[in-house]
Structures are given as structure tokens and as C-alpha cells.
């Protein structure tokens, strides 16, 4: 059984105007799914549907056997699907790191001793053990966002949804978050990243391209980024490695249709 199943989900904020139309996909254990699309394509709305912040107007979302149709299952769904948003400042609720991370487990009614263990675990997962007693105010953007992720991880979710969580960060901060995501996947946590950075999406196992609330293209990064014209129509670009590969091909250096950095290095090595 999949960790998360989205079945023909639709949603509209206003009548006669659907924001999400018949979206279906599933997420497996440890899988990394990237959702991309231009502004207003419905990415963030889809994210909010995944953990029940919004209720689908059609179709259903099934998480660990709990359906989004069942109102009493909301708590169970949110326990399993953790969500990290764009602005770390608006997600931290306490003035001390450990108090903030304790917030989630406290809500679950976990005994005190175990909350301590979960704080240790969450801080270790994001590599912020040293900052347990620190004040988030004094941390960098990347560090703050790592604390926000730790706050969600303390709930021990099966799926982590990153809703443009790197959009406000500098390159260093984005790198920090990418490393955390890699570690989490090794632990079997599935990650759904909503992003407009193609270089992040290219690392995913599966990419969903959203356009006007519908899935326009889906598949592996290779499958998706090979459809350059279609992506252009949707207002999207290739990742940097893809652009370089394309230009190299045009100049007669045949590296093939590679899209990721590692593939590109690999192809270049072979040519040398």
C-alpha cells in the first residue's frame, strides 16, 4: 500500500472556478516527489490538500488507511503528513528552539521523557544539536528552516511536504535543506517538494508538472525534462545541467539527453 494516495482530487476556492482538477498520484516509502509549475498553477493549494488544511471538493486523499473524507481522521493524517512552509519566521511558535520542537509532540499528548528523546532525534536529523537552547531569532534563514523541519520531524511523519521551503533561502541555506532531505530519505521518510527550482526537482524520483490545476506532465526527471518544448509552453525551464548539455550538443559535443549534474559529469567523463 502506498503511503499517500491522491485519487482524482479536485478543489475550488470559489464556485465555478476550480483550482485543482482531477489530480491523481501516489507516494511510496522513501520516495522523493517534486511538484513544479509556474505561479498560480495550484502547487501550494495541492500541498494544503495533502494534510487536510484544505478539504477536497471532489475525490479523496488516503494516508495510511485514513481518508480525507473522514473528518475525525484529520489528526491521524496530520500526524503522518508533516508540512513545512515558505517563511520560517511564521512557523516557529516558541522563543527557544527546544520549546518550539516540543510543540508538536505536546499536541500529540506524548509523555515528557519521550518528548525529550524526540527533540534529540529531530535536532540530530537536521544537524542542529548545538542549538537546542538557542533563540531562533539569532539563527540564519537556513538554520531557522532546519528548526522548522525539526519541529515537524518530532511528530515522526511518514511524509514530509516542503511547500516552497527553500524559496526564501540563500544558496547556502538551500544546500543545507537539500542535505537534510537526502538524509531523511535514507531513513525512509518520503519527501514531497513543491518548488520552482529545477535544480532541486531534478534530484527527485518523480516529477509532477502542474498547470492550471491539472497534472500536465509526470514521470522521472529524465522523462519530464526531455519534453523541452512542452515545458516551455508551461513557462518552465530545464535545470542548469540540462541547459548546458543542450548547448554542448548544439556545439557538437554529444553528451546525450542528460538532465542532472551527476549524469552530465558522467557523460563528460566518458567523452574525455
Amino acid at each position: 500500500m502506498s503511503l499517500l494516495e491522491v485519487k482524482n482530487v479536485s478543489f475550488s476556492y470559489e464556485k465555478n472556478k476550480t483550482t485543482i482538477k482531477g489530480v491523481s498520484f501516489s507516494v511510496e516509502k522513501g520516495e522523493f516527489v517534486a511538484i513544479i509549475g509556474h505561479n498560480g498553477s495550484g502547487k501550494s493549494t495541492l500541498a494544503k490538500l495533502l494534510n487536510g488544511l484544505l478539504k477536497p471538493s471532489g475525490g479523496e486523499i488516503i494516508v495510511g488507511g485514513y481518508s480525507s473524507k473522514d473528518k475525525s481522521a484529520l489528526f491521524e493524517i496530520r500526524k503522518r503528513v508533516g508540512m513545512v512552509f515558505q517563511n520560517p519566521d511564521n512557523q516557529l511558535i516558541a522563543s527557544i528552539v527546544e520549546d518550539d520542537i516540543a510543540f508538536g509532540p505536546e499536541n500529540l499528548g506524548i509523555p515528557r521523557e519521550e518528548i525529550g528523546e524526540r527533540i534529540d532525534f529531530a535536532l540530530r536529523s537536521v544537524g542542529m544539536e548545538k542549538f537546542r537552547k538557542a533563540s531562533p531569532e539569532r539563527l540564519s534563514g537556513g538554520q531557522k528552516q532546519r528548526i522548522a523541519i525539526a519541529g515537524v520531524l518530532a511528530l515522526k511523519p511518514h511524509i514530509l511536504v516542503l511547500d516552497e521551503s527553500t524559496a526564501m533561502l540563500d544558496p547556502q541555506g538551500r544546500k543545507e535543506i537539500a542535505e537534510v532531505v537526502d538524509d531523511l530519505r535514507k531513513q525512509g521518510v518520503a519527501v514531497i517538494a513543491i518548488t520552482h527550482y529545477m535544480d532541486e526537482a531534478v534530484k527527485a524520483d518523480k516529477i509532477l508538472v502542474l498547470d492550471r490545476g491539472e497534472i500536465a506532465i509526470s514521470g522521472t526527471p529524465k522523462e519530464v525534462f526531455s519534453q523541452k518544448e512542452r515545458l516551455g509552453e508551461l513557462g518552465l525551464e530545464l535545470p542548469l545541467a540540462g541547459i548546458i548539455a543542450e548547448k554542448l550538443c548544439a556545439r557538437g559535443v554529444n553528451v546525450g539527453g542528460v538532465v542532472s549534474e551527476t549524469e552530465l559529469t558522467e557523460a563528460l567523463w566518458k567523452l574525455l
Binding site: G82, Q91, R112, L155
Partner: peptide
């Protein structure tokens, strides 16, 4: 946004809540 983040972290008022400190 804070409300969304709190909801996402399973906040449901003081019922069945424990305290770390």
C-alpha cells in the same frame, strides 16, 4: 501562516496535551 503551521503540527487546543517543561 502561523495558524496553518500550528494546524499542521496537530494543534488541537489544550485537550490531551502534555507539557515538556
Amino acid at each position: 501562516e502561523l495558524a496553518d503551521a500550528m494546524d499542521s503540527r496537530c494543534y488541537a487546543g489544550s485537550k490531551n496535551r502534555t507539557k515538556y517543561k
